[in-house]
């Protein structure tokens, strides 16, 4: 009797089904990496990883011998824009989260959180278009040519602000009630409770939010393609245009052949590994924080 019942046990079916779904999702990432490796293979064979850094600029051609494939300037472009966006967005986002949890009345806080969620869902091309027709001409009047690291950082900052704010908010929410009660019992003001008790306790979650924001900024394509100017160079100031790894793929993939095409897949692989590394760092940070909280 137990044997026949277990055959169609809904629990087992569910567990099996969920395992299958999970395995499928995990396999997708592995398949993406394998696909990128296969596509990038020809150019890796032809130029090796060295020339990605040693070549004299990014002047791709159909054959490895005829082209120059340095991605240094593209990495610098992605890095500069993502860094700028994070510097602009993170303080605002953390302030928003603190406002939401500790300052705003519950109703307003709830409304504010909904707005952040909607902001997080606005398609990136909308931000990009706004940047192209409003922000870039504005910066151009001040510091030509307008399309620049600054424009990219501002647009991307807007896009990752809700991501960081929502994650910081949920990190603050998971601060143990006992900790906050203890702070209140000590007679700490709301301000000091938020800044000196809750935020340090939620540090792991906040840092995770920032890193995931950086990952999103690095992966964003359409908006930066429209506002960053797309000149392949290491920027000397925030007013100079740059081309990011993602914009480079979007600009050139449609016209790429042979080793050029393969090199674009290689930059895609670099991007994927970069984002995986960032997520791993975020995960390690969270783990360390969890241990610290458990011991403290």
């Amino acid at each position: 009797m137990p044997a026949s019942a277990s055959r169609l046990d809904p629990d087992r079916l569910l567990t099996g089904g969920l395992r299958l779904c999970a395995a499928f999702s995990a396999a997708l990432l592995i398949l993406v990496v394998i696909f990128l490796l296969l596509q990038a293979g020809p150019v890796l064979d032809a130029i090796g990883p060295w020339r990605l850094f040693a070549d004299d600029g990014w002047f791709p051609a159909d054959t490895a011998a005829a082209g120059q494939f340095s991605i240094v300037a593209l990495l610098a472009g992605s890095g500069a824009v993502a860094f700028g966006a994070t510097v602009l967005a993170a303080p605002l986002a953390i302030a928003s989260a603190v406002f939401c949890r500790f300052v705003a009345p519950p109703r307003i806080g709830q409304l504010f959180r909904r707005m952040l969620e909607v902001l997080a869902g606005v398609p990136s091309v909308v931000f990009g278009f706004w940047g192209l027709v409003v922000l870039v001409p504005l910066i151009n009047r001040w510091q030509p040519p307008g399309a620049s690291v600054l424009a990219g950082a501002l647009v991307l900052g807007l896009m990752i602000l809700p991501t960081i704010a929502l994650l910081a908010d949920s990190a603050l929410r998971s601060v143990p009630r006992a900790t906050l009660s203890a702070a209140a019992a000590l007679g700490l003001s709301r301000w000091r409770t938020a800044l000196q008790v809750a935020l340090p306790a939620a540090r792991g979650g906040v840092v995770t939010g920032i890193i995931l924001g950086v990952a999103r900024a690095i992966g964003e394509t359409m908006a930066v393609l429209m506002v960053c100017g797309n000149v392949v160079q290491v920027p000397a100031s925030v007013f100079e245009p740059v081309r990011t790894l993602t914009a480079n793929i979007a600009l050139e993939m449609a016209y790429a052949y042979g080793d050029h095409r393969s090199a674009l897949f290689l930059t895609g692989l670099v991007l994927t590994l970069l984002v995986i590394a960032l997520v791993l760092v975020a995960e390690l940070g969270r783990g360390a924080n969890a241990r610290r909280t458990a011991h403290g």
Binding site: V136, P137, L251
Partner: peptide, 27 residues
């Protein structure tokens, strides 16, 4: 040759280029 060209900006699609010029009197 491509490497001789020293552009201030690079546009992809035509409409992106038109918007860049329409928004910049010195382009």
């Amino acid at each position: 040759a491509e490497r001789q060209i020293k552009p201030d900006l690079i546009a992809g699609e035509n409409q992106q280029g038109i918007k860049l010029v329409a928004g910049n009197p010195d382009a």
